[in-house]
Design a protein around this nucleic acid. Structure first.
Length: 345
DNA sequence: AATACGGGGCA
DNA sequence: TGCCCAGTATT
């Protein structure tokens, strides 16, 4: 049994002394907390920082976000991944403006009615921005408590999550709920590490940790067996006419929805097959291949560069500046984007 | 209950 | 290479 007051005092003291300086901690308004929490879903703090600063600088409030141009919005998210997050952000902003009078909701029902806000994010916003009595149990906290309690169950199991939430709730201090929650996550990020050995020697929660006492820290959390990724063959076409290049927009749902790419074919093809299909091209040559790994998918990409005397219908023909600054092209295509911008094609 | 959904950093 | 990250929505 963990003593509530002792636990939170240890945690908050450690947090006060060692917490990282993060842009969203400067001025934790509901808007800034909301944006940061969405960006931080499945995404490391270090990766988020530059995106967060640019995003809130360009779109400082809910109204600005609700009215922003979609292509420009995608550009602000380019490279961050999980692009449905940014679509949901704008959808939510519209709802907030239209039905919540422009105020980020301060209750869990309205908050979780917004697309992109689930159980973790609602708790994070309510506790950090509004100082309300809610937990924010993320992957860090699940790991920390699996170790604290020497729990070998699968921490991804929703049932286990509920148990952890209940326990964390019982440990919440009277004041500083937001700092307490952030402190737990900070322990997970900087001390009770996900890979490699946790830094138990500097852990303020060491006295409470059953895994540490039993010397089984390295065995927890128990990880599950994962499925192999599916492999897909893709062919990228770098089509050019003078200083213009062809791009196309991906469909509005599914993988990389609504983002732009260089013309993309399913499957691999010989130079001969490509020449037959694009017989009106002035010149075609095979260029570097690439591999791109998604969480659940692996693209094996082959590529051809081809030039044309005129532009061809069905594509946007854009210059280098637009490729760099206007169209959001995800990182699966970064090799070819760099080749174009660097003048290699 | 399982799967889709990005990308990067580190052992 | 494999793991996992301040998760959510869909099937």
């Amino acid at each position: 049994m963990i003593e509530q007051n002792e636990f939170s005092v240890r945690l908050l003291n450690w947090y006060d002394q060692t917490k990282r300086v993060l842009p969203w901690r400067d001025c934790p308004t509901p808007y800034r907390v909301w944006i940061s929490e969405i960006m931080l879903q499945q995404t490391r703090v270090e990766a988020v920082i530059p995106y967060f600063n640019r995003f809130v600088s360009e779109l400082p409030d809910v109204v600005a976000l609700s009215k922003v141009d979609d292509d420009y919005l995608n550009k602000l998210w380019e490279g961050l991944g999980y692009y449905s997050r940014v679509r949901n952000l704008k959808k939510s902003a519209k709802i907030i403006v239209e039905t919540f009078h422009g105020e980020i909701p301060n209750n869990i029902e309205d908050l979780e009615s917004l697309p992109g806000i689930g159980n973790y994010t609602s708790g994070a916003i309510l506790s950090i921005a509004y100082e309300q009595r809610f937990t924010a149990v993320d992957g860090n906290v699940l790991r920390v408590f699996a170790r604290l309690m020497a729990n070998r169950n699968n921490i991804k199991d929703p049932n286990e999550k509920k148990k952890v939430k209940k326990l964390v709730y019982s440990l919440l201090p009277i004041k500083r709920i937001g700092d307490f929650n952030q402190g737990l996550m900070e322990i997970g990020a900087k001390v009770c590490l996900p890979n490699g050995s946790p830094l138990c020697g500097i852990c303020p929660l060491q006295d409470f940790c059953l895994s540490y006492q039993k010397k089984i820290v390295s065995e927890i959390p128990v990880k599950q067996i994962k499925k192999a990724r599916k492999l897909e063959k893709k062919t990228v076409l770098i089509m050019s006419h003078k200083s213009l290049y062809a791009v196309e927009q991906r469909e509005n749902k599914g993988l990389l929805a609504g983002l732009y790419q260089f013309p993309l074919l399913d499957g691999h093809f010989t130079l001969d097959e490509i020449q037959k299909q694009y017989h009106h091209a002035l010149h075609i040559k095979k260029i570097d291949s690439a591999k791109h790994i998604f969480t659940h998918l692996e693209w094996h990409i082959e590529a051809y560069a081809m030039s044309f005397e005129t532009t061809i219908g069905g594509y946007y023909w854009v210059d280098k500046n637009d490729i760099e600054h206007v169209y959001s092209i995800p990182n699966a295509f970064i090799k070819y984007k760099k080749m174009i911008l660097g003048g290699a094609i």
